[in-house]
Design a protein around this nucleic acid. Structure first.
Length: 792
DNA sequence: CTTAAACGGGTTTTT
DNA sequence: CCCGTTTAAG
């Protein structure tokens, strides 16, 4: 399977391939206009679907039905016989987007979507291609995909090996540079000497090359390589490139404004021959420039692909008039854009509100109050979002929501496979699977702590390097010598024996069984069980989920790939909660009501973006503002504070210039209620109005943990009796939300309960539907009875 | 080798 | 202020 099978009788293609000119194809095309999937489209959307041949750029403004066009276009290509599902390349940026697209195509045309094996992210498709031709780029087909932490460790080693002071030239910085180079499609030999010289007194280029060499030795790639190595493969092997060019009769790209140079080159190579490339994007929503995305790719499309058709989708189906108009006027201030005018046939609706707050605490309070008010009017919490510029803004807001007892969820944050426990577990499996995986070995050799610290690792390193063998092998040698003190020597020997045993097990047992055993016997699960911190229970839960999901994969190899590339935390939680996230994380989402706090100079537009990228930076910030406003369907609420704490110090701030960019006709200035809090922390109600949150996963959030910590420290001062007596406004919310759960619970002090996150525990106190439970693993918590079940 | 205290640095983060 | 990381003491 080293070649893309393009032959008529291959497994993935059906036997008969109609060419676009064949009778059957034309006959099927003739019935297309009556096909149901076309009927609901507006004229522009329909044009975008039906312009199948040649390069097409679809400029799809926010809320104009971009995904719909994309999926319908694919359905159309298949239904009219222009291509088999396996001949269509459809690229997205996120796995989520890929999944959604697959679902929607399936809904449009049935199970044929299953045949779309080339629908995925740039990275997953790149991986698939690379595995088939790995040996041509100096890899084996079972290469490992490194995560950020592995990369960093590797770079540290490379820097050290070159005799460079890691303090002065941190690995992080090198990682950033190399990442940027890879984003621009530059290999070690193509980086301009001057640019590479900026790091470590001219050694940047050498370090890059050394890093790449180390990757090859380890049979590993990083994310950037998944694209870069494809480029190299195709350039060095034109025959293989041509196979793919022929295979992909039609290519579609989502979020084209976010492509970087490497991705652009990747697409251009593939599209060169047939030129059936359809890119969908919105230059006004390009917000990843700092990560290498080139707005230029979309601005230059017509130039790069001569004869391209450009179709604009300008009818917005999401927002009401005032919101859309405010967003349009704002974004029109940008110079570098292709220009679109969004319009809606919806009513004007509510104006965009702008509210000035005294300080950031006050701002959080105001938002909290509005959410309470909305909720009292039966506005679903799941249709409310708070979008911040930087994560640091979340803290105060979270604290306030916790105080009010408003359930919320934080979107974004570390991905499932980025979490320490997942990466640790995977490292164990990687070593079992491939003992030569030094990075993985190094990661877990002393996790859990078993007394094999830096000194021991250093010895292993030296030997491994001198003998040019993997560390595992070096370790085998060293335990036979007296180079190590007796204790670490014995520990290391035990560990080696264990790994030998596990490797043997994996020959006969299923991987989930092996994983289970490895995690148990290595003491890894124990480590978290002993840990009493609030998130230990969650981590164990994640590990369980990991083992569970392994069962679905045929072998460890495909599982490891799935985890490093695709797997993400269960975010299928549709419960009633407010969403809190950064503006970046909000792209592609929509909510009835959107709160936009922190519109202040310095914060938004962010000073650093301005300093580093000048006008381009400002324009990207403005696009971010545009993205923020256009997330709102019916209500957009902008806030700014006159004082904000930055790095612990209070600074006075001025409203964002973006506020002044908004058209007066579409905005309304809201006077903040008079109960300002002048920094004293008493604003908006008693400090005793805090209460327990009542939602499952907010327990994991930092805000809740902080509230817990605070509660513990004030336990003596404000007794719980006092707290509940003094609760005011928030009670209402609680009363309503809690009404669902059993008022008079059957729980009694001393009873045993099971909580989905915290595990088993003993009830210490019962207060209405609130239980105080001493959990065996997670310590004492207050929980609502509806979140636990009685045991035994 | 492990733990606790000092230190420094602090946008955004699809893969 | 709050975090992760490095350093000095057990």
């Amino acid at each position: 399977m080293n070649q893309p099978d393009n032959s008529p009788n291959s497994q993935d293609d059906l036997a008969h391939q109609p060419s676009s000119g064949s009778l059957s194809a034309r006959a099927r095309a003739a019935v297309a206009p009556q096909l149901a999937y076309l009927s609901g489209l507006n004229p522009e959307q329909r044009a975008a679907v039906e312009a199948t041949e040649g390069p097409v750029l679809v400029l799809a403004g926010a809320g104009t039905g971009k995904t719909r066009v994309l999926t319908t276009r694919i359905a159309h290509l298949i239904a009219t016989g222009r291509a088999w599902p396996s001949q269509i390349l459809a690229v997205t940026f996120t796995n989520k987007a890929a999944r959604e697209m697959r679902e929607r195509i399936g809904r449009a045309i049935g199970e044929v979507a299953e045949g779309m094996q080339w629908l995925g992210t740039f990275h997953s498709i790149g991986t698939k291609i690379l595995r088939r031709h790995a040996e041509l780029v100096g890899l084996r087909s079972d290469f490992t995909i490194l995560g950020t932490d592995d990369q960093l460790r590797l770079m540290k080693q490379v820097i050290e090996a070159e005799g460079i002071d890691e303090k002065r030239w941190p690995a992080r910085q090198l990682a950033g540079l190399i990442d940027a180079w890879k984003n621009r499609g530059l290999g070690p030999d193509q980086v301009a000497a001057g640019e590479a010289g900026a790091f470590a007194n001219g050694k940047g280029g050498r370090l890059y090359r050394a890093y790449q060499e180390r990757l090859k030795v380890l049979n590993a790639v990083d994310f950037g390589d998944l694209l870069l190595e494809c480029l190299r493969l195709w350039r060095e092997h034109p025959d293989i490139l041509e196979q793919y060019q022929d295979r992909f009769r039609y290519m579609l790209v989502d979020e084209y404004q976010d492509t970087n140079v490497a991705q652009y080159l990747w697409l251009r190579l593939l599209a060169q021959k047939r030129k059936n490339l359809c890119c969908v994007g919105d230059d006004d929503q390009s917000i990843y420039g700092w990560r290498g995305a080139e707005v230029d790719n979309i601005l230059r499309f017509e130039h790069d692909f001569p004869g391209a058709i450009v179709i604009r989708l300008e009818r917005n189906y999401r927002s009401t008039g005032h919101i859309l108009s405010a967003a349009s006027v704002l974004i029109a201030k940008n110079q570098g854009r292709l220009g679109k005018t969004l319009r809606t046939e919806d009513e004007l609706g509510e104006k965009v509100t702008i509210t000035g707050a005294w300080d950031s605490e006050d701002e959080a309070r105001l938002i909290g109050e509005e959410i309470e008010a909305l909720h009292a009017k039966k506005h679903p919490l799941s249709e409310i979002a708070i979008l911040v510029r930087i994560s640091a803004q979340m803290r105060e807001i979270e604290d306030r929501l916790v105080q009010l007892g408003v359930p919320y969820r934080v979107i974004g944050g570390p991905r499932f496979y980025e979490r320490a426990e997942i990466r640790d577990a995977l490292a164990y499996l990687r070593v079992v699977n491939q003992p030569a995986d030094d990075l993985a070995f190094e990661r877990i050799v002393n996790v859990p702590k078993r007394g094999l610290g830096d000194a021991t690792i250093q010895v292993l390193h030296n030997h491994a390097r001198a003998a040019r063998v993997p560390m595992m092998e070096a370790a085998r040698f060293i335990v036979e010598t007296d180079e190590l003190k007796p204790k670490p020597r014995a520990t290391l020997r035990d560990l080696l024996i264990s790994f030998g045993r596990w490797s043997k097990l994996s020959e006969t047992m299923s991987q989930s069984e092996v994983a289970q055993i490895v995690l148990e016997e290595s003491g890894y699960t124990d480590m978290w069980q002993k840990e009493k911190s609030a998130d230990a229970a969650g981590r164990l839960e994640n590990l369980k989920e990991l083992v569970r999901s392994m069962e679905e994969f045929p072998d460890l190899q495909s599982f490891l790939e799935h985890v490093s590339l695709v797997m993400e935390a269960n975010e299928s939680d549709t419960s009633e909660r407010v969403s809190l996230m950064t503006l970046h994380a909000a792209k592609g989402l929509e909510f009835d009501t959107v709160f936009l706090p922190g519109w202040e100079e310095g914060l938004f537009p962010n000073q650093r973006a301005l300093d580093e990228s000048g006008r381009a930076g400002l324009e990207e910030e403005r696009r971010l503002a545009h993205v923020g406003i256009t997330r709102a369907k019916r209500r957009a609420k902008i806030y700014f504070a006159s004082n904000r704490r930055i790095h612990g110090l209070w600074n006075s701030t001025v409203p964002s210039r973006f506020v002044d960019d908004l058209p007066e006709a579409n905005v309304e200035i809201v006077e903040a209620p008079a109960n300002f809090s002048y920094g004293g922390g008493y604003g908006g109600g008693s400090r005793f109005d805090r209460m327990q949150p009542f939602s499952g996963s907010s327990y994991q959030t930092p805000g809740w943990q902080r509230a817990q910590a605070h509660r513990a420290s004030t336990e003596d001062g404000g007794s719980s009796a006092r707290r509940s007596r003094d609760r005011r406004g928030p009670m209402m919310i609680e009363g309503e939300l809690v009404a669902k759960s059993t008022g008079s619970s059957g729980f009694t002090v001393g009873g045993r309960v099971l909580h989905s996150k915290f595990g088993p525990g003993t009830i210490e106190a019962v207060d209405g539907n609130k239980l105080t439970v001493e959990f065996d693993k997670a310590g004492r918590k207050m929980v609502l009875d509806s979140f636990v079940e009685a045991l035994g």
